[in-house]
């Protein structure tokens, strides 16, 4: 296993980490900066919104933090709205990357898959790198490949199927991750990265939680690459009793005879 060769890239750009972090809902700008330092994220997501006139401090803080900034289209409900937001974000941040969100239902924030595909196609024609925020529907994700993101781990079997069917695509699990074990589980399924926000920002102590998620993403990824043992229906002792021949634990292994 070539651990040192496990690079992660989206659209040909190498990212420093498989943990991606949102910038919303932290108790303070200083807390956000601490979390970025502890998480070491591959990128930071931001939004673009009406300005209050001044306020360059947030931008300076993020620039200082270091990871690339990726704008989202949070709150957009139509294709036109999302494409305009992406265009303004592109000028604002000087990036053609966009996390495309198109909300179909206010109560659940569930994405509108039809508008999402239409907007993604339009943005791809305009040379954007589109990270589409979608559900784990196989046909939908196939349309949105190479890059998609799922909603948490509510349906791990669907996520596993998606990973299997879209083996060559970059797949990120986003939203619905509450604890580090969720992040590790997503990575164990072979997902390329995890995008988090609230689980860190709303922790009692966000910075240590950021560190915990970093460790969990690393653990899950390493486990996936190491090859997780298949599930067994019957228990097998992991310690060999001295009076039982080794062959009895490994009946498939040929006994060495001389």
């Amino acid at each position: 296993m070539a651990e040192d060769a496990d690079h992660f890239a989206i659209a040909g750009r190498r990212l420093a980490s498989r943990l991606l972090l949102g910038t919303s809902r932290y108790p303070s700008p200083a807390a956000l900066a601490d979390c970025v330092a502890r998480a070491g994220p591959g990128l930071l997501t931001v939004s673009v919104r009406r300005s209050a006139g001044g306020g360059n401090a947030f931008y300076e803080l993020l620039k200082e933090a270091g990871p690339p900034l990726v704008p989202n289209t949070a709150g957009c409900r139509t294709v036109a709205e999302a494409c305009r937001t992406a265009s303004m974000a592109r000028e604002l941040l000087g990036t053609n990357w966009v996390k495309l969100e198109l909300i179909g239902d206010d109560e659940t924030q569930a994405p509108d898959p039809f508008a999402l595909v239409e907007a993604a196609e339009q943005l791809l024609r305009e040379d954007y790198v589109v990270l589409a925020y979608c559900t784990e529907d196989l046909a939908l994700c196939t349309r949105l490949a190479p890059i998609g993101s799922g909603q948490g781990l509510n349906h791990p079997e669907r996520l596993a199927l998606l990973r299997q069917r879209l083996a060559g695509s970059v797949l990120v699990v986003d939203a619905g991750i509450g604890r580090p074990s969720d992040a590790a589980a997503a990575m164990e399924l072979g997902y390329d990265a995890v995008l988090l926000n609230t689980a860190v920002a709303l922790a009692r102590e966000p910075a240590p939680m950021a560190a915990a998620f970093r460790a969990a993403v690393d653990a899950g990824r390493t486990a996936y690459r190491a090859g997780i043992m298949p599930r067994h229906d019957m228990a097998q002792p992991s310690t060999l009793a001295p009076d039982i021949p080794v062959e009895r634990y490994h009946p498939h292994k040929e006994t060495q005879t001389q």
Partner: peptide, 10 residues
């Protein structure tokens, strides 16, 4: 006229 800037986002 709308003037937009960078904000916190997830």
């Amino acid at each position: 006229i709308e003037v937009w800037t960078l904000r916190q986002g997830g």
